[in-house]
Simulated assay, not measured.
Amino acid sequence: MEESATWEGRPEGSWASSAGRRRNMQAIRSRDTKPEFLIRRLVHARGLRYRVSARPEPGLRRTADLVFRPAKVAVFVDGCYWHGCPEHYQAPKVNSGYWSEKIVRNVARDRDTDQRLRDAGWLVLRFWEHEPSEECADRIAATVIARRGVKQ
């Protein structure tokens, strides 16, 4: 199926710069990324059960990668590009204004999410995709187990 294009060369109804770029962007996963999947597998192997890509709070229109409801722990595995990792983020060379603003908005939304969850009594754990999965899983398991022993 061939996409129709506007006079600017962009796919009709899309802000993408080309049909190829649009396909590339559509292929980017918002959940079940390799780092997230590895951490989930390791946490599960430690005997912990959790919700995947779930809203920690019903009124909050944002999802955490792993949610431990009884312990009130929300885990996010942030991609270095999409969440502006201070070590690995590199501004794009094409359409840099748009993407830089998008990343700034993502980071601001992350901080807002953290604050809203803390205000609701949640503990938020954030990890970068480049962090060792074993270390992340160890920290998650220790935190959840410790919180389970404390009455909320």
Rank of each mutant, 00 (worst) to 15 (best):
residue 27 A to I: 01
residue 6 T to E: 09
residue 143 T to V: 08
residue 107 V to L: 09
residue 124 V to A: 02
residue 60 L to A: 09
residue 42 L to N: 04
residue 34 K to E: 11
residue 17 S to M: 12
residue 95 N to T: 02
residue 58 P to V: 14
residue 30 S to L: 10
residue 82 W to C: 05
residue 105 R to E: 12
residue 116 R to K: 13
residue 18 S to D: 04
residue 32 D to P: 09
residue 131 E to W: 04
residue 58 P to R: 14
residue 122 W to H: 02
residue 22 R to G: 06
residue 35 P to Q: 03
residue 149 G to E: 12
residue 3 E to A: 15
residue 44 H to R: 14
residue 85 C to T: 05
residue 68 F to Y: 06
residue 94 V to C: 04
residue 76 F to T: 05
residue 57 E to K: 12
residue 96 S to L: 00
residue 83 H to T: 00
residue 7 W to C: 15
residue 102 K to P: 06
residue 12 E to Q: 10
residue 123 L to G: 08
residue 121 G to D: 03
residue 106 N to I: 00
residue 133 S to G: 10
residue 102 K to R: 03
residue 53 S to C: 15
residue 5 A to M: 15
residue 125 L to Y: 13
residue 79 G to E: 07
residue 122 W to V: 03
residue 108 A to C: 01
residue 11 P to M: 01
residue 116 R to W: 15
residue 13 G to M: 11
residue 79 G to C: 02
residue 136 C to Q: 05
residue 31 R to E: 12
residue 135 E to Y: 13
residue 109 R to T: 04
residue 36 E to M: 07
residue 41 R to Y: 12
residue 85 C to P: 08
residue 8 E to C: 13
residue 59 G to F: 11
residue 28 I to L: 09
residue 94 V to W: 05
residue 145 I to P: 11
residue 74 A to R: 03
residue 6 T to P: 06
residue 99 W to N: 00
residue 107 V to M: 10
residue 149 G to S: 10
residue 95 N to S: 06
residue 145 I to N: 13
residue 116 R to D: 15
residue 42 L to M: 09
residue 129 E to Y: 00
residue 63 T to K: 15
residue 64 A to K: 04
residue 59 G to E: 14
residue 44 H to D: 07
residue 115 Q to S: 13
residue 147 R to E: 12
residue 41 R to I: 04
residue 19 A to L: 11
residue 150 V to N: 12
residue 29 R to K: 11
residue 96 S to H: 00
residue 126 R to G: 02
residue 140 I to K: 00
residue 44 H to E: 04
residue 100 S to Y: 04
residue 63 T to Y: 13
residue 136 C to P: 03
residue 52 V to I: 15
residue 64 A to I: 04
residue 16 A to Y: 01
residue 71 A to S: 04
residue 104 V to I: 15
residue 1 M to Y: 05
